[in-house]
Design a protein around this nucleic acid. Sequence first.
RNA 1: GCGGGCGUGAUGGAAUGGUAGACAUAUCAGACUUAAAAUCUGAAGGGCAUGUGCCCGUGUGGGUUCGAGUCCCACCGCCCGCACCA
Length: 761
Amino acid sequence: MSRYSAAEIEQKWQTAWDETGLFRARHADDRPKYYVLEMFPYPSGRIHMGHVRNYTMGDVIARHKLATGHNVLHPMGWDAFGMPAENAAMAIGGHPKDWTYSNIDDMRAQMKPLGLSIDWAREFATCDPEYYGQQQSLFLDMLEAGLVYRKNAVVNWDPVDMTVLANEQVIDGKGWRSGVDVERRELNQWFFKISDFSEELLSALDTLENWPPKVRLMQENWIGKSRGIEIPFRRTDGADPILCYSTRPDTMRGATFIAISPDHPVSRSLADANAELAAFIADARKMDTTEAAMEKAEKKGIDTGIRVRNPVWPDQTLPVWVGNFVLMDYGTGAVFGCPAHDQRDLDFARKYGLEVRNAFYLPGDPTDVTDVALVPAKTEPVSYVDHFAGIDEVTSQQGIDATIDWFEAKSLGTAQVRYRLRDWGLSRQRYWGCPIPVVHCETCGVVPEAKKNLPVRLPDDVSFEQPGNPLDRHPTWRFTTCPACGGPALRETDTMDTFVDSSWYFARFTAPDAATPTDPDAAAYWMNVDQYIGGVEHAILHLLYARFFARAMHITGHLPAEAIEPFDALFTQGMVTHEIYQTRDANGRPVYHVPEDVENGALKATGERVEIIPSAKMSKSKKNVVDPQNIVSQFGADTARWFVLSDSPPERDVEWTAAGAEATHKHLSRVYRIAAEIRAAEEGPQGTDEALLREMHRTIHDVTLGLESFGFNAAIARLYAFTNTLAKSTAGAAARREAMKTLAQLMAPMTPHLSEEIWQQ
RNA sequence: GCGGGCGUGAUGGAAUGGUAGACAUAUCAGACUUAAAAUCUGAAGGGCAUGUGCCCGUGUGGGUUCGAGUCCCACCGCCCGCACCA
């Protein structure tokens, strides 16, 4: 072969690797183990450049570790449950199962040509009954361990589609499919007790040294620990006091009203006798809970007529309002409003003509002031604090803590540590998910399914013509017998949130065929994941849920104590972006064009200039998607792999360009050519060329360092430089041969096929 | 509002506090060719001198240091995450 033919080379070596079972991982081995994992894909049907970059990074590490004497586990699977499959069934007919499995086949067929060093024998999909059956078993263990419970919760309910909607599926207060107003409905739902682990999930973040600081910080903020105090406000009518939660009791002097949630018990009981209030509460209920809506929503309130006393200055009485902005499930569902020091409270006070009172005495100011402009800057020392604890700066954290202590010492309140983290509601009124393995028995109530009856399989004969959950209207599926009393019972028809599926798959990969969720030996040997790689979009939910699950799996005996932090190192890679090409139609609306139709900034067909928007996320609607399959068939997998790693550091976005891909291909052709030249060079008595060999060893050092520290772009730059040196080298044939072999070896993690070809010749 | 990150040629980006701009793209020139492609050789931060040299340069302004793209302070700009959380 005189020309570089990626197609031939790649096919040849992929077959060879397959036949020798090179990437099969076995857990009896003297070599140190290394588990590298990329976040597994949702089987949409097409792989995209982001997948290529993600899996190539993992593959570079896997191959590098394999080459440096490690026993490597590098598996792949499918995060296969979820709504798109049901949506496809509703839109185009067919069955979610068929749609999903056929997508998996398609995607596997697109991935295999990339030459990834994956142990395909371990592949599974989360919708395999073998997988979700083990998940049900895990759920039952967690139920027994008290890590799962049922409670009523308010959800977004679409009255037409008859299903719960995620916040993301509520657009402007309306269901994204039905277009009707979404209701807030209270339903009985299953919850994981993740909030029991708030403190531990928070403090253990410090041990995750090889995680990006940014991700740790995001989790810290999400868990949201705060120290505050619960303060009872006595009512003038002598009824039970209203408990308010505050993290800023130092602003007590500025309190001019109390706001309670529409869901607060006091609001509810008053509503019985107050039609206006009842209407207000009903109205607040209708408001959807999405971020966007919350931001726009007007702050509204209604005076209850109740008055309470300021606990520190009892001669001051404050009105109690119901406010639509007060959340029932944070703190006590009641707050005191301090308009002088809080923008939201100020807006509210202005709207309803409530008093604005400065919380802090200004130096030399003996009386209360009402002008907001006089409020001292946060860090300014204030003089009034002798009232509290004799501290001179209330607004430092120390000052706030001292104020809390002061309140406690005077028996005016109880210090509280609170977390923003809520329990994880896992019930979904959906078909295509893991059935929750419980039954509802008239005599026994909620009863866990017996493990011998697992998996509770999804029925195949379902229809999607009607809205709602097909499991609910299935003629027979629901009807079963109670595992406890043997009487008639109904199955739970809710399925699990798909985040559950991805919360433990990494553990299942260590023994994908085990008859229990994990195999203790295999889990002990392979866990933890040494390097986990994925998108930063999973920084909070997936990674937090997985950390919770690892703890739950330890408690239920499915993972060793060492595995409660399942990912030793985490790397979040950047996106692959591409220019967008757009022109305008007669009405000035943008029209997008695929890259193939554009040449030199103009449409190939008409010559019309296109507007170029650089570095945009690839998306179908903007038509700037580059299909990896096309690149592989045009240039080969090695070119695609090399390109997505070159140019940009892996944590940053990389811009895909046709010119860059071509240049990469030219470079690989050049390496191939140089190798051929060197092979053909006359053997002779020439000695070594020390300069070349010195450069070679320097390259080995730099590239190794680059591969081990996610400096792939720098490693590749070094390989370019060495290729140039080698091409120009006038050293003897033996030295050049040695240098060429080394070059091939160093390139191998990125371009395994080309390297293997050069190495073997 | 709270939290975090980043500012280096035309472009993507290199650079344990020690020769800024490695490597690549785009560009230009040359060789080969009837021509083109491919390939090979070379130029290239800006300015002045163009002859070997000089001056200025990592968002802006200060500071630490023998020495700062790198460390510290302030400001400007961009990006990201969170947010009626009391």
